[in-house]
């Protein structure tokens, strides 16, 4: 067994890294053994899973890793099918670079806002710099908190075309359920019908990133 490793990275805070990591991991757990690595010193992913009651734990184990991130991820590759790494909101520490070097694919959540797009450009450059050292590293943007009625959201397509890395066809819309599940230590896959739209969004992303 050799896991596929996804890093969720963006040096901009509040772009939705942990939300994407946790829901993605929960969705991937339906396809194989999945692990979440919390590489963020803020420990948001660990805290998220800790909110779950004992009788109904988060469906995926979440562990915090620090300086020996790359070697530990390599070690866990043997035991899992999927590893999702929640990166810190910074490029100043080595953790994001180490996580990306140990990954097969980097997912970059971006909000439909100019400030977020400008900041994400820096990560896109960092990925380009890593690629000679980590050949085969794939990367893609994931549009997060899309509001189809807003002019900025509709304007995203042209702006995304300026990036060297492609954007997934499946965006994540701005929905309250993504915030609500964090409070309960759950994922959108634990919800009933109220979570159907969110489930479909995450499932579409999983289809895109695991497809041929």
């Amino acid at each position: 067994m050799t896991a596929t490793v996804f890093s969720i990275a963006n040096q901009k805070g509040g772009s939705g890294k942990t939300t994407l990591a946790m829901n993605l991991a929960a969705g991937l757990s339906g396809r194989g053994r999945t692990l979440v690595v919390d590489a963020d010193p803020q420990g948001s992913a660990v805290q998220w899973s800790g909110m779950a009651p004992e009788r109904r734990p988060f469906p995926v184990p979440v562990i915090a890793l620090g300086d020996n991130l790359a070697s530990e991820i390599q070690r866990f590759r043997r035991d899992y099918d999927f590893i999702v790494v929640d990166c810190p909101p910074s490029l100043e520490t080595e953790r994001t670079n180490k996580a990306m070097l140990a990954s097969d694919r980097v997912l970059v959540p971006v909000l439909p806002s100019p400030v977020d797009l400008w900041a994400s450009m820096r990560l896109a450059r960092a990925i380009e710099q890593i690629r000679p050292i980590r050949p085969g590293l794939e990367a893609c943007l994931v549009v997060n908190q899309l509001e189809p009625r807003s002019a900025l959201s509709r304007a995203m397509q042209e702006a995304l075309a300026e990036f060297e890395i492609p954007a997934l066809a499946s965006p994540i819309r701005r929905r309250a359920v993504y915030r609500n599940v964090a409070i309960e230590g759950r994922s959108v896959f634990c919800l009933g019908r109220q979570g159907d739209a969110a489930k479909a969004e995450i499932a579409a992303i999983i289809e895109e990133i695991t497809g041929p």
């Binding site: 490029l91 100019p114 797009l117 400008w118 450009m121 820096r122 896109a124 450059r125 002019a151 900025l152 509709r154 304007a155 995203m156 397509q157 042209e158 702006a159 075309a161 300026e162 990036f163």
Partner: peptide, 23 residues
């Protein structure tokens, strides 16, 4: 392309071609 889309794309192009010194 709408005016806002054009300006957004232009701003991203500028961020790409002329990034600020990180230090």
């Amino acid at each position: 392309m709408s005016r806002i889309a054009s300006r957004l794309a232009q701003s991203v192009r500028q961020a790409k071609n002329d990034p600020p010194d990180p230090r």
